[in-house]
């Protein structure tokens, strides 16, 4: 079947089977490989995108379910001029990523959190990241990056 949706502000159409996951549609049909697949039990969150402004796991949603939806992926998160958004910049500033594999999902989750709670506490940040697993950072600098992106004071990452 043909599926049409808006991805990162652009209308796109592509072929999908019933079983085609949104993540596969993005990666294989649209070539948007920033959305990653880290598990098959809907736990790791590397595939997190926004559908109609809401954070979802694109590996646990069929492409057909996104028919007509507004989808935002990591590729659509930078500013219009190509510079990093405040959240992306904070991840770099506070070393909130190492291997980078979970990072797209983390950024998408962080963006959804700050939309909902502009100034989250540390506990709220950690709770919100329940569905995003990072194996590299121990989350320390991810938490700091999100605090920083929310405009809250953060201790410097390093001297």
């Amino acid at each position: 079947m043909k599926v049409t949706m808006h991805v990162n502000g652009r209308q796109v159409s592509g072929e999908a089977e019933g079983r085609t996951l949104l993540s596969a549609f993005l990666r294989e049909e649209l070539g948007l490989t920033g959305t990653h697949i880290g598990c098959d039990t809907s736990q790791c969150g590397a595939c997190t995108v926004h559908v109609d402004g809401k954070q979802v796991k694109s590996c646990t949603m069929f492409a057909a379910e996104a028919e007509g939806a507004e989808v935002t992926t990591i590729e659509g998160m930078a500013n219009a001029d190509g510079s990093l958004s405040a959240i992306q910049q904070a991840f770099q500033d506070y070393h909130g990523l190492q291997c980078g594999f979970c990072t797209p999902g983390m950024v998408m989750a962080a963006a959804a959190l700050l939309e909902e709670i502009p100034q989250p506490t540390e506990a709220q940040i950690r709770h919100h990241l329940d569905g995003n697993i990072c194996r590299c950072t121990g989350y320390h600098n991810i938490v700091k990056a999100i605090q920083a992106a929310s405009g809250q004071p953060v201790a410097v990452a390093a001297e």
Partner: peptide, 9 residues
């Protein structure tokens, strides 16, 4: 329940 993404679906 679950996590934010699960709660949205």
């Amino acid at each position: 329940i679950g996590d934010p993404a699960v709660r949205n679906r």
